[in-house]
Design a protein around this nucleic acid. Structure first.
Length: 578
RNA sequence: CGGGGCGUAGCGCAGCCUGGUAGCGCGCACGGUUCGGGACCGUGAGGUCGGAGGUUCGAAUCCUCUCGCCCCGACCA
């Protein structure tokens, strides 16, 4: 394409609404424009990148035996009502009415529709396994859209749905999708980790997330520095010593001490001194879960993970009890609660059981107890209740865990019969028995990956696209208006087109600096610069976006050289197949 | 939903406190000089100051309401 014919409105100044890197560069590079909060339009370059990503996803989905379908975005309310999600989805569901007053919603995800599609025509075990996928817009009224393409109200998503006759078949489908996802993320050129995940409200069991590593990620993940263990912080656990309870002989007599005004862990450590560390204290918190209050005990240097607590208590959410409730339940003001003598349910993190002669609140204002030991002085239900921290021991191998930020790029999980049972999607097995179909669901946030890729691939001058998803592979930059330069540029451009690579010719009447700045901002992986000096020797400069220096190449050989680089990177050639 | 910030030319901003006929930089158009990392000089076009109502002789500026956008938090299949 010729730059002068293109619609690539780059901007020098940083748009004020953009705060994170990918958002800034997408706007500055003329890839996207904002239409409303969480609503964007893709300009030609942005759409090309989206198509590149979609192409890789389609290729791998098809290779894994899935077939593409297109589902409606406008859904009659009966579908979501059938599974109860018309209500449970809440305000996130975008609802509308037609002229006759009929109720509809825009699809935030399509389990109901695909299940309906399948239940109409799949009646026999012979018709499975089956895997259908879609790549299309999904709509969610996010409470807070943000960060450009990373969290939108309207976004392109790939969702695949598998249908199997039994658990084993579903696990096979799941494994195939997992393998396909590994190929996809590798081909996209992204650094990622597959992590254990919470299956959330989708009603699933086995599940994993594909997290694209990036500073700006919304998700925290814990990954082992030695083995393959990696998990979303929502489910990550640290190894604990279950059978190394403190030696009873080492336990000392418990004493009540006066600690006026020293409520928090740090206050007590400072007050008592004498080498006391937070790890030798027990933090006791009162939580409200539904109608009841419970006490949760973790080591002083640990944090309670409320989601884990909520799961343990089988409630949607828990929150810290009010000061008044704490007082009425423990008899002491906030900061002096403790498990010893507490009348009520006590839940403690595993690590609590290992602390010898701990210090904790006495359930009496301005007082603490010393030498408190689990088992001897109090009992509690032990569970994994804390947030994993960097340096904790890996539950698989014991090595140190490290914490990363990640952007959820994909999520795969087995749904089981959650939808099929509710919607009567059943089949007859070989014995003629009617059974619900076992389903799985596999999503990739396609438009989000455009931004995720930039979060990972950029420098101070702009984007540095991996070849596989760049809008163009190479940009030809002639310097000067002399006939010889112009003719050489045309010749190179034509030869690149003939070689099947995606090329953009910067034929603008601009000074070199402007062309270089724009080329860097756009992030085109390869640049061929045609200047007077090298051209006199029959050569042009070939430079990688990520490298500082260019190499001189014979003008007649540059197309082949570019083609080789593109092919080696696994990028798709014009009209070619992967 | 709670807290904070911002809406003035295509973009980034000043002007507002202390009312008096709207300005700067970039970009854009034209002319000239330049030409290997966002050139320079000159000329010019472009704004119902987010919207509605109010106060006033007079409102970008003061008051009320409203809409939109951004950030932090809650939330996030």
């Amino acid at each position: 394409m010729r730059y002068t014919r293109g619609f690539i409105p780059t901007i020098k100044e940083v748009p004020k609404e953009a705060t994170n890197t990918s958002h800034v560069l997408l706007l500055r590079g003329g890839y996207v424009r904002q239409v409303g909060a969480g609503i964007y339009e893709l300009l030609p370059l942005g759409l090309r990148v989206l198509h590149r990503i979609e192409g890789i996803v389609r290729d791998e989905m098809d290779r894994a035996g899935a077939q593409e379908v297109l589902m409606p975005a406008l859904l009659p309310s009966e579908y979501f009502q059938e599974t109860g999600r018309w209500d449970s989805f809440g305000d996130t569901l975008i609802r509308l009415k037609d002229r006759k007053g009929g109720e509809y919603n825009l699809g935030p995800t399509h389990e109901e529709i695909i299940t309906d599609m399948v239940r109409r025509d799949v009646k026999s075990y012979r018709q499975m396994p089956l895997n259908l996928y879609q790549i299309q817009m999904k709509f969610r009224d996010e409470p807070r859209p943000r960060a450009g393409l990373l969290r939108c109200r309207e976004f392109v998503m790939k969702d695949a749905y598998s249908f199997d006759i039994d658990e084993a078949g579903a696990l096979t489908s799941y494994a195939q999708m997992r393998d396909a996802y590994h190929r996809i993320f590798k081909r996209l050129g992204l650094a990622y980790r597959i992590v254990a995940a919470d299956s959330g409200a989708m009603g699933g069991s086995t599940s994993a997330e594909f997290q694209v590593l990036a500073q700006s990620g919304e998700d925290a993940i814990a990954a082992c520095t030695k083995c393959d263990y990696a998990a979303n912080i929502e489910v990550a656990t640290a190894a604990f010593k279950a059978d190394v309870a403190p030696d009873a002989a080492a336990m000392q007599a418990s004493l009540k001490i006066h600690t006026p005004g020293a409520g928090g862990i740090e206050d007590v450590v400072k007050f008592i001194g004498k080498g006391l560390t937070p790890a030798h204290m027990l933090k006791s918190l009162v939580y409200t879960a539904g109608l009841r209050h419970v006490m949760v005990v973790v080591r002083g240097d640990h944090q309670v993970h409320e989601l884990k607590l909520a799961r343990l208590l089988k409630v949607d959410a828990v929150h810290l009890a009010s000061d008044a409730d704490v007082k009425s339940v423990t008899g002491a003001s906030v900061g002096f609660a403790g498990p010893v003598g507490f009348k009520g349910d006590v839940f403690a993190d595993h690590a609590v059981a290992n602390v010898l002669n701990a210090v904790t609140g006495a359930n009496e204002s301005d007082h603490h107890l010393t030498n408190v030991n689990y088992g001897r002085d109090f009992k509690a239900e032990l569970a994994d209740l804390r947030t994993v921290a960097a340096g904790d021991a890996c539950p698989e191998c014991g090595a140190a865990l490290d914490l990363y930020q990640g952007i959820e790029g994909g999520h795969i999980f087995i749904l089981g019969t959650h939808y099929s049972a509710k919607m009567g999607a059943t089949f007859l097995d070989e014995k003629g028995a009617e059974k619900p179909i076992i389903m799985g669901c596999y999503g990739i946030g396609v438009s989000r990956l455009i931004a995720a890729a930039i979060e990972q691939h950029h420098d101070e001058n702009g984007i540095t696209w991996p070849l596989a998803i760049a809008p163009y592979h190479v940009i030809v930059t002639p310097l000067g208006k002399e006939d010889a330069i112009r003719e050489a540029a045309e010749k190179v451009y034509t030869s690149l087109l003939a070689a099947g690579v995606e090329v953009i010719l910067d034929d603008r009447d601009e000074r070199p600096g402007v062309k270089f700045k724009d080329a860097d901002l756009l992030g085109i992986p390869l640049r061929i610069t045609i200047g007077q000096k090298s051209l006199a020797q029959g050569k042009v400069e070939l430079k990688k976006r990520t490298e500082k220096d260019a190499v001189l190449v014979d003008i007649d050989a540059c197309a082949a050289a570019v083609r080789t680089l593109v092919t080696e990177a696994g990028a798709v050639l014009r009209g070619g197949s992967a």
